[in-house]
Write a protein that binds this DNA or RNA. Structure first.
Lengths: 238, 238
DNA sequence: GAGTGGTCTAGACCACGTA
DNA sequence: ACGTGGTCTAGACCACTCA
């Protein structure tokens, strides 16, 4: 029917994302049924279905036959480590977490650029370790815009039982949809080596990540240093 | 209509892949029209379309509106570097290639396992460099089962103008569909350092790849060592 | 049993590429 | 002008979940 540029299913997809960005449905909630959405958007069920197909492929929503369509969440055990590609060579899974610090700071030029902030805008800086047994495997540094994560503190992080992304979702209503990573091999700095219990200069996998919430708004910059002696970063190429 | 386990569109998808594996259509060829396929598989056009949707998403086929549906190829410039995730920090693209050797060998236990061969089955071993300007950025070692790549030689590789995957496709009718990679940071061995013009112990990104052809049959094992001083490996997380 | 998503069909009309 | 894929609709029937 519409002569406009984008096909109807694409417009509907965007309208659903906009509603998610505004918080009309929260992670874990059920969306209206396909028939109800079709009525709301004045489209046929098949067209709505196509929009939901794409959102399902992008892990924005999740369908459960017989039950409904639900907003994707990082709270569910299934999706807890969706963005962590590091796996042990022997298949072991799961890490113990240890917070190093959580403090207020000002955005560096690099952070500001990545997160679309003004330079020296307030950010929250988090550093933590991921450990297996007594060995530290990952050193993560995070930068978060304070305007989205006001009040985040070491206490809050330490008290929360789930992953950081689950915490961000539950407490700050910021749901991470996708991320872009840039990987490099680097030599461990003295500081990183000491935190990871290695010798300076040891090879580390550096993973720079920018994570995006609904509408492709960048809301987290993260730099991970992975000690890949008994672990590897797995990737699928299509 | 069928009560069998898999939905009809999935069965059709598999039948199309089987036909591709048997060489009924070669990379670059046009498939029959959706209507013709519907008739062939005794299904409705919508069902065939769904099968083609999935094959399109997997980059197995490519649709061109008004023209038809074509078997995906590594020959086309668009897809030449589909599996190379390494990009220069400044956006520069493209490498010069330099063959180090191409020789017959026997599969190691590791190679045999990755490629589903018997240990010490004949394989072809290729080593090459990728360079930008005068700087070597990548050292690649490849292992290929001789039974799929009989006669591959340094001459053949050096004479062929396109990528290795395009060569494999044109000359050996082996089309790479997808790949799995495992990444690590490692210290450069003396040999690798010398080939890449670095000092021993320099941090390198090690990329182990197994590439699969139609029907998930592994046909290439590759170990790349990437010098990531002015380049990075980019990845999208969904 | 009522309601949900999953599959499959049938057909209309449009946009595009080729010649 | 023709044939191709792209969009959109309408409806039937099935499989599953949950009260």
């Amino acid at each position: 029917m519409p002569k406009s540029a984008a096909p109807l299913y694409e417009q509907i997809r965007q309208l659903i994302v906009a509603a998610l960005a505004e918080g009309e449905w929260r992670p874990g909630d059920a969306l209206p049924s396909e028939a109800a959405l079709a009525e709301r958007f004045h489209a046929s069920p098949g067209t709505v279905r196509r929009a939901l197909d794409e959102l399902t492929a992008a892990h924005v929503v999740e369908r459960r036959q017989g039950a409904g369509t639900f907003v994707a969440t990082h709270t569910a055990p299934r999706d807890a480590y969706r963005f962590l590609r590091l796996v042990a060579d022997d298949g072991t899974v799961g890490f113990r977490r240890e917070l190093v610090h959580c403090r207020r700071a000002r955005a560096s030029a690099e952070t500001a650029r990545a997160l679309h902030l003004r330079t020296s805008e307030p950010v929250i800086e988090v550093r933590r370790l991921l450990l297996r047994g007594e060995r530290a495997v990952v050193l993560d540094d995070l930068w978060l815009p304070e305007r989205h994560f006001a009040g985040l503190s070491a206490e809050i992080i330490n008290e929360y039982p789930g992953t950081l992304y689950a915490l961000f979702e539950e407490r700050y209503r910021v749901h991470m949809v996708r991320a872009e990573e840039k990987l490099r091999a680097v030599a461990a700095s003295a500081e990183a080596a000491s935190l990871l219990g290695l010798q300076g200069g040891a090879p580390l996998l550096s993973v720079d990540r920018v994570a995006f919430t609904y509408g492709d708004r960048p809301v987290e910059l993260r730099r991970g240093l992975y000690h890949t002696e008994a672990d590897h970063y797995r990737n699928q190429l299509n």
